[in-house]
Design a protein around this nucleic acid. Structure first.
Length: 290
DNA sequence: ATGCCGCGGCTTCCGCGA
């Protein structure tokens, strides 16, 4: 079974590239971020024709997450408990009872989508960008990560053997080698501040691990469109698959599909893939006899 | 301090992204 995550930067602008890649790479499940549309605008027909069903969580032209799967999806959830919302200016009045708002009354954004597939609990996540170290959005980012970590800890305390994978655009470069964009300076920019890195590494204390890095130690997953960042390979590693022990034990391979940043009309992110071997699942490799 | 690119929309500029 091949599971992937990809920030597609508008599914309407990218649908042909995404579906071509799904088929070519024999992907079973794809967690997408930044679909940038509402469900009615999502080009679902192209996915259906290729044999995928799609769950979509999109509220407007910003953010938006989806999961495409060849296998049935169940227990589909939007958001997670305690997920904070955001607005540049506090809504007037702040009404926690209003639909689509958090406990303070701030509007929730479409940044998390969960589904159970073949016993695996999978999330497509789009962590807030942060914008700047003195920006309210940066505090929102930290609160959002902390709420997700608290939920993760609760899910795993209730079910320690849960095969859980949190997949997506984390907007954090956890190690110095993950940051190759010279416009970011470690300690003084978003994505590489001590606070963001601590918020990311707290998921390890909660029982998750990066299941791609041990198999793919090097490589970026994002390159800015401007300033020749891709040809100069000045990118960042910010897209991750963090998984519970039960999920990590199933992983047989992983890859970062750097070539998807090439050619006409690429996303600024590339897909990150894990291969897993489920109990009783036929190995995808052909058996060689004799 | 801004544009560089690319996206979407109450579109011909602006907000946002990382």
């Amino acid at each position: 079974m091949r599971i992937a995550t990809w920030n597609v930067n508008s599914i309407r602008a990218r649908v042909d590239r995404v579906v071509d890649w799904l088929v070519r790479e024999d992907i079973d499940v794809l967690a997408m971020q930044e679909i940038k549309c509402k469900p009615a605008q999502f080009p679902i027909e192209a996915f259906t024709a290729a044999g995928y069903e799609v769950e979509i969580h999109g509220l407007n032209q910003w953010n938006g997450v989806a999961i495409a799967s060849r296998l049935p999806m169940s227990e589909v959830t939007h958001e997670f408990a305690g997920m904070p919302g955001f607005a540049k200016k506090a809504p007037v009045p702040l009404d926690p009872e209003a639909p689509g708002t958090d406990a303070l009354g701030y509007p929730l954004e479409a940044r998390a989508l969960g589904a159970t597939i073949d016993g695996l609990r999978l999330y497509s996540l789009y962590v807030p960008n942060g914008r700047g170290l003195d920006d309210p959005h940066w505090h929102y980012k930290l609160a959002w990560l902390e709420a997700l970590r608290a939920d993760t800890e609760r899910w795993l305390s209730e079910n320690p053997d849960l095969p859980l994978a949190l997949m997506g655009d984390w907007n954090v470069a956890p190690f110095d080698g993950d940051m190759g964009d010279p416009s970011f300076s470690v300690g003084n920019s978003t994505h590489v501040s001590p606070e963001e890195r601590a918020a990311f590494h707290a998921f390890e204390a909660a029982g998750l691990s990066d299941v791609v890095r041990p198999l793919v130690p090097e490589g970026y997953t994002f390159w800015d469109y401007t300033q020749l960042r891709f040809p100069r390979n000045e990118g960042m590693r910010i897209d991750f698959i963090l998984a519970s022990r039960a999920f990590a034990d199933l992983v047989t391979d992983a890859s970062i599909h750097r070539d998807e940043r090439k050619g006409d009309g690429p996303s600024d992110h590339v897909p990150v893939v894990v291969d897993i071997q489920l109990e009783g699942e036929d190995d995808d490799m052909p058996m060689i006899f004799g």
